[in-house]
Design a protein around this nucleic acid. Sequence first.
RNA 1: GCGAAAGUGGCGGAAUCGGCAGACGCGCUGGACUUAGGAUCCAGUCCCGCAAGGGGUGGGGGUUCAACUCCCCCCUUUCGCACCA
Length: 966
Amino acid sequence: MPAYDPHAIEAKWQEYWERNRTFCAEDAGSKPKLYVLDMFPYPSGEGLHVGHPEGYSATDIYCRFKRMKGYNVLHPMGYDAFGLPAEQYAIGTGTHPRVTTEKNISNIRRQIKRLGFSYDWDRELATTDPEYVRWTQWIFLLLFETWYDPEYEWMDPGGKKRTGKGRPIRELPIPAAVYAGGEEAVCRYRDSFRLAYQAESPVNWCAALGTVLADEEVINGRSERGDHPVERIPLRQWMLRITAYADRLIEDLESLQWPEPIKEMQKNWVGRSRGAEVDFYIGIPGAGYVKWAAERKKAGFPGEPGPDAIRIYTTRPDTLFGATYMVLAPEHPLVDVLTAGNRRNEVEEYRKYASTVSEEDRIAGRGEKTGVFTGGHAVNPANGEKIPVWIADYVLISYGTGAIMAVPGHDQRDLEFARTFRLPVRAVVMPTDEWFRRMQSYLDRLHDILTVEVPDKEWPPRDPIGPGNYKDYVDLLPEAFTEDGEGTQSANSAVSLNGLPTPQAKEKIAGWLAEAGIGRPAVKYKLRDWLFSRQRYWGEPIPILHALNADGEPDGTIQAVGEDELPVLLPEMDDFKPTGRPGGPLEKATEWIRVRKSGREFARETNTMPQWAGSCWYYLRFCDPRNRDRAWDSEKEKYWMPVDLYVGGAEHAVLHLLYSRFWHKVLYDRGHVSTLEPFQKLVNQGMILSTTYRNSRDRIVPYSKIDFRDGGAFHQETGEELAGVIEKMSKSRGNVIPVDAPVGQYGADTTRLYEMFIGPLESTKPWSMQGVEGIHRFLNRSWRMIVDESSDRLRLNPAVFESDAPAAEEHLRVLHRTIDSVSGDLENLSFNTAISRLMEFVNYFTAQEARPLSCMEPFVLMLSPLAPHISEELWRVLGHEEAIAYAPWPDPDPRYIQESALQIPVQINGRVRGRITVPADADEKTLERAALQDPKVKKHLEGHSIRKTIVIPKKMINIVAAPEKN
RNA sequence: GCGAAAGUGGCGGAAUCGGCAGACGCGCUGGACUUAGGAUCCAGUCCCGCAAGGGGUGGGGGUUCAACUCCCCCCUUUCGCACCA
C-alpha cells in the first residue's frame, strides 16, 4: 500500500493503542505529572458535529507533546449523561432514559475513538453510573452536614491567613435559648445553617414541561427548551448556600491562569457590593419616633429591625439626606403593615400585577416606572422628615433587604420614578464640573428644540447650570448625578457631610449611623443561593428522608440517608409523563418512596439534582475512578490535582465553573481535597461556524439537497446557485456538519489537523470543506516525502538516505528552526502556526533530491502529536519497532538556529530601500558602513543629507534623511 | 443601557518585545505531465501603475527615527449582563 490510506492506517493504530493500553496513566512515578481535562460532553442523540472535537484535538495534541517531553499525563474522558433531553424523549416515546442515554453514549464513544484521541479509556465514566451517583450523593450529604462559620480563622496552603470556613454541623454552637427548646428546636436550628437546606421560594414553574426551571433555563419568560410559558409559584426547594462562599469565589480567582474576561464574568456574577444597612422608623415624626431613636442610640443597631422599622440597603449612605421617599418590593412582608385602609385595594391590585407579569414584559417595560403609594410613612433618620412609602416592581425582593431609600437626586431609577409620580427631588451631592458641562450641552440643545413651561421656574435656565443653581434644577435635569462629588444640603445637629468628597462622606455618615444605632456597614451580593431541586426523573435522587407522622404526612423533620445505604437509585418506571403537579414524576413511585427505618416511617425526597451536579466533581473521580470504598483516594488526589489545563466552551464560563469551584471549596474545607481551586489554567475554545445556504427566496436549503461543484453550491433539483452565510451550526439552519463527514472522507488525522489549522484555538472560525482539502494534501505530501509511492511495498522514498555523515548545514538549519518554533507553538497551544512551520518544512524538503534520514525522523516526531496515526506509520517506515507515542521530543540545536550571516533591511525615512547581508555579530558601525555602501541606498540618498541613523543590530537600519537645500 | 473582546488581501489567518505587513493554507491565473483531471508538479497572485514609483492593517487624530502593535476620539461586529439600590 504505497499511497497514503488514512482509513487503513487509522484503524490499525487505534487498535494497537487500545490493545497495548498505550495511554493509560500510572497514579505515581518519577516523571512530573500533568492533568489535562476536556469539558466532557452531554451524549445527545445527534452525536458530535465538527465543533465538538476542536477542544479535544487541542488537548490531545498537548498531551501527546507533553508525553514525549517526559510527563506522566492524565487525560480522561466521560459523559455528562443525566439531563432533560433523554427524559423528554422518554415522555414522548416511553423509551427509558437509560436506554436512550446508553445508546447515545456508545455512538459518541465511537465518534471520539475514531478520532484517535489519547484518552485513558480505563478511566471512562458516565455521571449516570450507579457507582458515580453514589459519590455525587455522598457530596450532597457532605454539604448537608456542613455549615459555614464566617469567623473561623485558618491558614491556606499558600500560608495566607483566611477567615471563614465550612465546618461539620455538629460543631455548630447551639445558643442556650435554642437548646432549651428541645431536640426539635435544635434540629431546626441546625437545618437553618446547613449548606444544603430547604426553603420555600418562588420558582419558575413550567406546566408544559411539568418541571421547575432554573433562572438560566428561562429566556424572556419562556422555557429555553421547547419555548413554553413559565410562571412563578412558591415551592419547597433544596438550596445550596453558595453565597457563603461568595468572597472566596472572588478572591481565589486571582491565583488562576484563566482568561481575564471569564474572571470578570465570574466577578460580575457574584456581584459583590459594599454599602450600609439603615433602619427607617415606620410612622411620622413625633413622640413615637423620638422614643424609638433614643432607644436605638442606647441599644445600638439590632440584628433584626423589629416591627417598627424598615431596613434598607444602600451603596450610597452618603445620600441619606436626599432620601425623599422609600420603595418596598411588592412582595415585602411589611407592605401589609404599612398599607393604609383606603389604599388596600390599589396595593393588592398592584401586588397581583407584579406577581403575574412575565419577566418578558418586565424587561420590555423597563424604564417606565410603575408603583403605588401604600399610604404609609417613615421617618428619614438624617433629617427627621416624614417620607412616603411606595411599592414598585423596580425594587427586587431577592436583592439586599427588598427595600430601598429613594434618592431621586442621585439615582437614575429613583429619578424616573419620582418624575412619574411627582415626588420631591433633592440635591445632596454637588456634581463635578465635567458633569455640569455635559448637562449644559444638553440644555443648549434644549434651547434650540423646545421650551417647556415649568411653573415658578425658568426652564431651561438662563444662567449656565452649575453649583449656584444646581439645587433648583435637580428635578428637571435629564440625568441624576450618580458619581462621586461633594456633600451638600446634608447636615443635622449631629453630623455634616457638606463639602466632603463622597468617599469621606460615606465614612463619616457610617460613623454617625453606628453611633445612632440606626445603621451599619454591609456587603451584598447579586449571587443567589443555588436552587438545587429539579422535579424530574432523570437525575440523581436527593438522598434525604422525610419523617412521617401517624397520619402518613411529613412532620417536617428530615434525615440523611445513611452513607452505607448509598446510592439511592432511581425507581424503575415506565411512565415518565409530568404529573401536572410541581412534585415531579418520582411522586408516582409510591413503593419506592416508602421507607421503614428503626421502626419509623419515612418518605423519600422526590426531587432530583440538576445536571450540574454530576459535572461539578467529575475531575476528582477521574483521579481514582474505580474506587469502590471512597469517592477518591487522598494520595491519588494529591498526586494529580489540580487540573493543569481545562479546555471547553465559553458557554460554561459562569455556571459550571462557579458551581464546581464552590463544591471544591467545601470539599477543601472538609478535608477531602488538597487544593483551593480545581482548575489551574482554563482555555475556552472558539466556536466553529458553518455555512448556511439559502435560495433566492431566502429559504434555507439543507446540505442534503445541495451539489457542491465548480467552487459553488447549487440546488440539486432547481440547479439554482445558492448564497452562503457564515453562521453558528444549528439543526434549524440545516448547516450542522457531523464529525463523521470529514472523518469518513479524509480520516481522523486530516480532520483534527484541519480543526487546528483554521485559526487560533480561542477564536470563532468558519469550517470550510475546501480548507480540509489543503490539509489533506499536506499529509499526502508528508507521506510522499518519506514513502516510495511507486513501489507496491511500504518502503522508504529513494530520496531519503541514511548516512553517518552529518546532514548539509542548510538542511540542519531548516530542521532545527522548525523544531524550535514548533516546540514553542505547541507549548503555547498555537497549533495553527505549528502546522504552518511543518508545511514549510515539507515544502522545503520535497524540493530536495536528497533527504537525510536524520532530518525526516525529527519531522515525524514533530508531526506525531498533531497527526498521530500517519506518524506512527511513518515511524515504522523509518525502521522503528516501538510506538512513537513515548519517543522523546527532538531538541533544537542552538548552533543551527542562529544564522552566521543575516540579511538586514535598510530603511530610508521608514521605507525599505535596500538590503545588506552582514555577519550576525556585526556591530553598529559595521552595519552603518555597509548600509551606506549599498548601491540602492546610495541612489536614494542622492541629493539628501543624513540627519540621523538608527541601527538596531540583527534587526534593521533606518536612515533619516532630508533633501539638501540648494 | 452597562461590561468585555475583536476589526489585516477574494477567503481562513501570520507578524512572540514598537523594527521588512500579508508567513502558511484556500481560492484564482498561467504552464508541465496526461486519454482525462476534482491527482501531481512548476510559476504567479495586497491595491494603483507599462515602469519608475506611489498607496495600504475599520475611520480620524497623536506619540516615535520607526505603529497592525502604544495613546485619544469615532464607527462596525461578536459575546456576556440586564432596574442588583
